[in-house]
């Protein structure tokens, strides 16, 4: 890992963290969505550094493109700015206890990584360039997807079809007369 990679990684990780924190903090859902888009772009850069260019491209296309556009669409349609909640009962101490839980969780995760020996350096000088070459190529990913992982791939397409039908059925208006009155 040379210096340039390290600098790019630190910048992308900082952007990802800022995006995630802004997503959690900001009051306005539109700001949350925009912060999350920044986070997804930063993650795409990190995928590139981890020698997964296909997934970096798909991250930008699917997440930052399609999914976040869907989120913004819903927000623009249904959330008025400055809308007061009709129901104002909040759980007491919700933020406090969730903060404590989250701190415990991050401690457990990082401790688990530490105990798992993630941070111990190993000498792995063996032909790193050649390894990365095979990992990076889109051909290898495609042939793995269509040979060894063909069944999960096809099941994914079935899942997408079911989700499409489910979304149409769920978001449709109730009642009989919605065919005639086009709104």
């Amino acid at each position: 890992m040379n210096v340039i990679e390290l600098i790019v990684f630190i910048a992308a990780a900082a952007l990802a963290l800022v995006g995630a924190a802004g997503m959690v903090m900001s009051r306005n859902p539109v700001h949350s969505a925009l912060f999350l888009i920044a986070n997804f772009f930063a993650l795409a850069v990190i995928f590139l550094l981890l020698s997964a260019p296909v997934l970096a491209a798909l991250q930008v296309l699917v997440y930052a493109g399609a999914i976040m556009v869907l989120f913004l669409f819903i927000i623009f349609f249904f959330v008025q700015p400055g809308q007061k909640h009709l129901y104002v009962y909040s759980l007491p101490w919700q933020t406090f206890f969730s903060g404590i839980l989250v701190i415990v969780l991050i401690c457990i995760l990082v401790l688990g990584l530490y105990m798992g020996g993630v941070f111990t350096a190993e000498e792995h000088v063996q032909s790193a360039a050649m390894k990365v070459e095979e990992l990076t190529s889109p051909q290898a990913l495609g042939s793995a997807l269509f040979s060894r992982y063909l069944l999960p791939f096809e099941l994914t397409s079935l899942l997408l079809l079911a989700a499409m039908l489910g979304a149409v059925v769920l978001a449709r208006k109730e009642g009989r007369g919605d065919m005639e009155e086009k709104d």
Binding site: L55, A66, Y149, L159
Partner: peptide, 17 residues
Amino acid sequence: QVIALIFMAVAAAEVAI
């Protein structure tokens, strides 16, 4: 990487629903 790719499709379905 293959599993991450499949996860992206699952996430898209989940967002739609």
